[in-house]
């Protein structure tokens, strides 16, 4: 369970780490995730799981391109632009996945769909694929009885760590986020690299949305991400922009949510489920405070140019 919830956060924060390392704060994460969920819902009904996952990644990349163009090339305020993107994603996903519009889209995508599928609010869940052998080990076996996207997240985290810290493109990416002018002088194309990093974050956010819907709760609800994108943003800070530490953080938040579900099941005395549901948000704030205190002490690094548009003029 912990892994199942944690994967949502892990996928979303992996991409966001790249964007922020390059100096771009993608506050559109929440909106891209919810769009990923909506698109995966529609495409699963029309064409099945694989098409749905690919479509949500593509839509995520396209949406992040809006942010890339506005924040990198037009040098608009990243906070405002990101929020606008989140609102756009929330509105558009609610619009596209609403029963009336969904019906029109589904019929356009696949006219042979039976009437039953045009009206349902849920989609088939991604199947779990146990890894032979590994899944039978006690205790850690549960890590290997998951769906394919969870396995992808296992592989993506170390791979993205390796690229970021051990390869030349990774070094360029980090230098662009620390000191774009110096990187530019070294012949690195700041604009292109930031654009690529933003698109990576969009692709992963789209995938995270698809996973949230197909792998975890395949019921459509407007705004079903409920702030998970924003929690992922705090997680990126908690992980100090390191993909490997993001694994721990993601499972920590996954664990918190599972504890909350469990406590609800046991009906823990008078504790209201609504109070328990606050836990992830409060822990996210606590994590931000802890990192902030810690970073003053150890001077651990916010990418120095995070949120600052780069321009050669100035």
């Amino acid at each position: 369970m912990t892994v199942q919830v944690g994967t949502v956060y892990l996928l979303a924060s992996l991409g966001e780490i790249y964007a922020e390392r390059s100096g771009i704060l993608n506050l559109g994460l929440e909106g891209i995730m919810v769009m990923g969920a909506a698109i995966s819902f529609i495409f699963t009904l029309a064409y099945g799981h694989l098409a749905a996952i690919l479509a949500s990644i593509i839509v995520g990349i396209l949406m992040s391109l809006i942010l890339a163009v506005m924040a990198i090339y037009m040098r608009l305020n990243q906070t405002v632009t990101g929020l606008a993107l989140t609102m756009f994603g929330l509105g558009l996903s609610g619009f596209l996945a609403s029963p009336e519009i969904r019906r029109i889209i589904l019929l356009a995508l696949n006219p042979s769909l039976p009437e039953r599928l045009l009206a349902i609010q849920e989609a088939p869940k991604l199947p779990e694929i146990p890894v032979p052998g590994l899944s039978e080990i006690p205790v850690i076996g549960c890590f290997f009885r998951q769906n394919v996207l969870v396995y992808i997240s296992y592989m993506a985290a170390p791979l993205m760590w390796f690229i970021l810290f051990k390869t030349k493109p990774g070094l360029s990416l980090r230098s662009v986020g620390e000191n774009p002018a110096a990187a530019d002088a070294m012949g690195i194309n700041v604009f292109k690299l930031r654009c690529a990093a933003t698109m990576i974050s969009g692709g992963f956010a789209g995938l995270a949305g698809a996973y949230l819907f197909l792998g975890f709760q395949p019921f459509w609800q407007e705004g079903l991400t409920a702030g998970k994108g924003f929690i992922a943003l705090s997680l990126v800070i908690l992980s100090t922009w390191n993909p490997l530490k993001a694994i721990l953080g993601a499972y920590l938040f996954g664990g918190v949510e599972v504890i909350q579900y469990r406590l609800q099941l046991f009906g823990l005395g008078a504790l209201s489920p609504y109070l328990l549901a606050m836990l992830p948000y409060l822990i996210a704030i606590a994590a931000l405070i802890a990192v902030s205190i810690e970073s003053v002490r150890k001077r651990i690094g916010v990418p120095a140019s995070l949120g600052i548009p780069y321009s050669r003029e100035e």
Binding site: M87, F88, G91, S93, F95, E222
Partner: peptide, 12 residues
């Protein structure tokens, strides 16, 4: 949700 979408497009 259409109104919300139009709102966001105007914002962008």
């Amino acid at each position: 949700a259409a109104a919300q979408m139009i709102q966001a497009i105007i914002f962008l």
